[in-house]
Computed example of a mutant assay.
Amino acid sequence: MNVLVFDIETVPDVEGARRLNGFEGLSDAQVAAAMHFERRQNSGSDFVRHHLQRIVAISAVLRSGSQLKVWSLGTPASGEAELIQRFFDGVGKYVPTLVSWNGSGFDLPVLHYRALLHGIAAPRYWDTGEDEPAFRYNHYLGRFHWRHTDLMDVLAAYQPRAAAPLDEIATLIGAPGKMGMHGGKVWGAFQAGEIEAIRQYCETDVLNTYLVWLRFELLRGHLGAEGYGAECRLLRDWLRNAEAAHFAEFLARWSSCPQD
């Protein structure tokens, strides 16, 4: 089975806000501030609505056959449309089980709106059995289907009041938790041109999600103790061989990492 664990990082879509609200003549920072102010006035939260979130990074862990890969799609210079196209092309190629943390509540709705904006086709992702009969009762859009597993939703028994932050759950199971920055700092990093730092932060978040996924597979009996240990060792060895400093730091902070 192919498994693709994914996470996105976003910033306010200031161009979209200009188009909708007539913010011509304002700088990007001023438009973003206006967007946050408007949301606070209307909802009490400065969280920008899904359709006005612009994707600047998509990171993934792919587990396929004997392959394990951790990376961010495209390059730091890739535009939003390219990142989204690569994501849905990967879904079409591997037809994986998608795994996320709050993907149903955030990542996927944002991907839907932004794919619509860019005119991106994703037929395999949207199939609910019209083309592939096996998708009829297990497709990516079904909240209670396993083809997309939103770990936050599932572990909370689909009860919003029981939802927990990824950082806390990851830390509790011995994973590193948040590293480098948090979501509230992404806009500032983006304005400073620190795209690579955002991509690295997204990669550590998706690694945390992957470790929660492995523990979940142990919880529901899809992995025994031996299989769970083997999967952790496979990731440990991948991180050891990776050259990037943030992967080495993740490994050093992974307190439940199996030892030789």
Rank of each mutant, 00 (worst) to 15 (best):
L62Y: 05
H36Q: 13
N21S: 05
A60C: 06
I58R: 03
A32V: 04
M181C: 15
S72H: 02
A248S: 12
L219K: 12
N241P: 01
L20M: 12
F144R: 11
R161G: 14
G79S: 08
H182G: 15
G227L: 08
K69A: 10
Y140W: 05
R40P: 02
R136E: 13
Y140V: 02
K93M: 10
L26A: 08
V14A: 08
V186L: 04
V212R: 00
L26R: 09
G229T: 10
F106S: 01
Q53D: 09
E80A: 00
H118I: 04
L234H: 11
E9L: 00
H36G: 10
A81E: 15
A157T: 06
I55V: 15
G174I: 06
F216P: 08
T204C: 10
D131V: 13
T204V: 10
R147F: 08
D28K: 09
I195A: 11
R136Y: 13
D260A: 13
R18C: 07
V110E: 04
E80V: 03
A245G: 12
D127I: 03
D46C: 09
M1R: 12
F88L: 04
L83S: 05
I173T: 07
R233E: 14
L239K: 00
V14S: 09
V95K: 12
L141D: 07
P76W: 11
A157Y: 10
A156V: 00
L26Y: 03
V61F: 04
G193Y: 04
V70R: 01
F106R: 03
R240V: 08
E9I: 01
A164P: 02
A33E: 14
R215E: 15
S64A: 13
T75S: 15
G119A: 00
T10P: 05
H145S: 07
L111P: 02
G183E: 06
H36A: 13
G65E: 14
L155G: 04
F23I: 02
N241E: 10
D260L: 08
L117W: 15
F106D: 05
T128A: 11
L214K: 07
L207Q: 02
H51R: 11
H148T: 02
Q41A: 12
L83Y: 04
V5N: 06
F135C: 14
H222N: 12
V61S: 06
L219I: 04
G174P: 02
T128Y: 06
D13K: 00
A245P: 11
F87D: 01
N138Q: 11
T209V: 09
V5A: 11
E130K: 13
Y201K: 05
W213S: 07
Y125Q: 07
L68H: 00
C232D: 05
R220I: 11
S72E: 02
A242Q: 13
L155K: 07
P160L: 11
A121S: 15
Y201P: 04
H246G: 06
F247P: 05
N102I: 07
L251Y: 03
E168V: 14
A121I: 06
E196I: 09
